[in-house]
Design a protein around this nucleic acid. Structure first.
Lengths: 159, 159
DNA sequence: TTAATTCGCTTTGATAATCATAGTGAAATA
DNA sequence: TATTTCACTATGATTATCAAAGCGAATTAA
C-alpha cells in the first residue's frame, strides 16, 4: 500500500498514519520539549536515528503539514525546522504519551522537572507549553519554557 | 535491534516502542471504542489487518501487559481478549489521538456521537469511558457506554 | 452421523521499510 | 589554503509487512 492511500477515514487511523512509527513522535518531542531545530540536532538524539531515516521522516512530516523547513540565515548550509500550528496541536498527544510512560513503564527515566510538572493541572501545563512554543521556547529550554513558567528552574535536573 | 532492547529510557520512547506502529492503537481502539474481543472481530476491522500481523500485534500487546487473553467458555475455539489496567490507562492517548485527527485531518470521518462527545468536558468523557470499560462496556456499545451515559443514544450515527 | 462451515491461527513467498555505514558537495572555519 | 562541519545520499544487508492459502480443532447444518 502506498503511503498516499488511507486504510480508513477513522480519525485515529489517519493520525496513526502520520505519527504511528518509531521516530516521528521522537522528532516532535525533540522540537517541542528540547527546542531542537536542525538536522544535526535531531541526529544527535539519544535514540540514534540514522540520517536516511531522519531525512525520510522529516520529509514525511513536512508533507503532512506537521513541520516547516526554511533556510538558516546565519549558516547557509543549514535548514531550520519548526512545528506548524497543526504540529503544535500534537502537544496534548505527546503529553499523554509521556504521562503514560512515566506512570506505566517502571524503567522510564526523565528529568526531575518533568515529574514535578506532572503534579500541576494538566490544562495549565498544556497552555504553558503552547505559549512556550509560540514564543520560540520549548518545554525545557528558552526564556518562556514551561520549566521557567512553573518556577521549576532551581530543581536539579537528574538525567 | 531486537524488540526487547530499548533505544532509550525516555517515557515517550518507551511508550512508542509499544504503540508506535500502524496497528496497535487500532486494535486498542477496537477494544475500547467498539467493544471487540475476539480474533475474528479484530480481523473484520475496516482497515483490513492480515491474520499474521494481527497475531504478532496481539502477542506483542500481551507481552507488554496491555491486553490479556483467556479461553472463551461458550466456544472452545475462541479466545477473549481484554484490556488490562495498564491498557485502560492508554485511553487518554487514544482520546487525544482521536481529537487531533478529528480537528486536523479534513478527511476524517467518525460517528456523529463522537463529534457530539467532543463538546463535553474532556475529564468527564475520560471518566465515563473508564467506567464503561470497567463494567464491560465500551465507548459506543454496551449498557454503560459513554454514548449512553452522555444521553447521546438517540443521535443518528452517520458513520 | 456425516458434511460443511467457522474459528484462531501458521505458513509462504513477495514486497517494502529500516538499518548501519560510507560517502558527497557546499559552506564555514582555522 | 586546508580542514572541518553541515545536510543530506547511496548502498547493501537485515527485518518488517503484506496478501493469500492452508490447517486442525470445534461448531453447526443436513
Amino acid at each position: 500500500m502506498k503511503r498516499s492511500d488511507h486504510k480508513s477515514s477513522c480519525p485515529i487511523n489517519l493520525t496513526m498514519e502520520i505519527i504511528g512509527d518509531t521516530w516521528s513522535l521522537l522528532i516532535i518531542r525533540d522540537m517541542a520539549a528540547l527546542g531542537k531545530r536542525t538536522f544535526g540536532e535531531f541526529l544527535d538524539a539519544e535514540e540514534r536515528i540514522g540520517p536516511s531515516v531522519l531525512t525520510d521522516r522529516l520529509n514525511h512530516l513536512e508533507r503532512k503539514g506537521i513541520i516547516e523547513k526554511r533556510p538558516s540565515e546565519q549558516d547557509k548550509r543549514k535548514f531550520i525546522y519548526s512545528l506548524t500550528e497543526k504540529g503544535m496541536n500534537l502537544i496534548p498527544i505527546v503529553y499523554e504519551v509521556a504521562v503514560w510512560g512515566s506512570i506505566n513503564q517502571v524503567d522510564s527515566e526523565a528529568p526531575d522537572v518533568w515529574y514535578q510538572s506532572m503534579k500541576y493541572d494538566k490544562e495549565l501545563v498544556l497552555r504553558l507549553w503552547r505559549e512556550a512554543l509560540e514564543s520560540g521556547s520549548s518545554f525545557y529550554n528558552g526564556a518562556n519554557s514551561v520549566v521557567t513558567s512553573l518556577g521549576l528552574d532551581g530543581i536539579q535536573s537528574k538525567v
